[in-house]
């Protein structure tokens, strides 16, 4: 299996690596109930502060589902960080007719979700999402990750508008006004 061959270590921005954090490995055909019960038993222990859920390739959506289900079940405030790592994998297919090997390149993404009871202070606000009894503030996250303050357009200096043309005599006819078009039939 692909998951057995690829051994990746988790990396989250602002969090030091800790061997003691339990990692729940989600496969494509994992049973959600079993994993949820396992996570509950771990998380109810007071010494456990963090859990990592991991899944790669086709199990990514199941990782998200399990984390959402767990957050809905848990009564406490949970802080979450998400990260994705990717590995390039070369697969060789032996074409029996031509006896040639065809190398195919494939990207295998791995989704990591860190759930923490404690507040994560070292991470930037745009990376963290806070969940209270299964409710997550999406608009707050959008505000934090907003680029309006830092956008390039705001840094550009606005062009100054030129002053309107002032004439000495206000009754003077505008010399640049469009001249009335005379039709060809009227030219006689």
């Amino acid at each position: 299996m692909e998951d057995d061959l690829i051994n990746e270590e988790w990396t989250f921005p602002g969090i030091n690596y800790d061997k003691n954090i339990k990692i729940v490995n989600v496969k494509e055909n994992s049973k959600s109930n079993n994993l949820l019960e396992f996570m509950k038993s771990i998380f109810n222990d007071e010494t456990t502060r963090k859990i990592i859920i991991k899944g790669s390739d086709r199990a990514c959506h199941k990782v998200v589902s399990i984390s959402e289900l767990f957050k809905r079940t848990c009564d406490k405030v949970i802080y979450q960080i998400n990260n994705i790592t990717s590995v390039l994998e070369n697969t060789d297919n032996v074409n029996s007719e031509n006896c040639k090997k065809i190398w195919k390149r494939k990207t295998v993404p791995t989704l990591w979700i860190l759930l923490s009871k404690d507040e994560l202070e070292q991470c930037s606000l745009r990376k963290i999402q806070k969940t209270v009894k299964g409710n997550t503030d999406f608009e707050n996250w959008i505000m934090h990750t907003s680029f309006v303050k830092n956008s390039i357009e705001n840094n550009k200096q606005k062009k100054k508008l030129k002053r309107p043309i002032q004439r000495e005599d206000p009754d003077q006819v505008n010399p640049w006004a469009r001249k009335k078009k005379i039709k060809t039939s009227e030219k006689k």
Binding site: V64, Q80, N82, R126, Q129, G134, T136
Partner: peptide, 8 residues
């Protein structure tokens, strides 16, 4: 760089 958010 990427920011990831999950919700229900």
């Amino acid at each position: 760089d990427f920011d990831i958010f999950t919700k229900t």
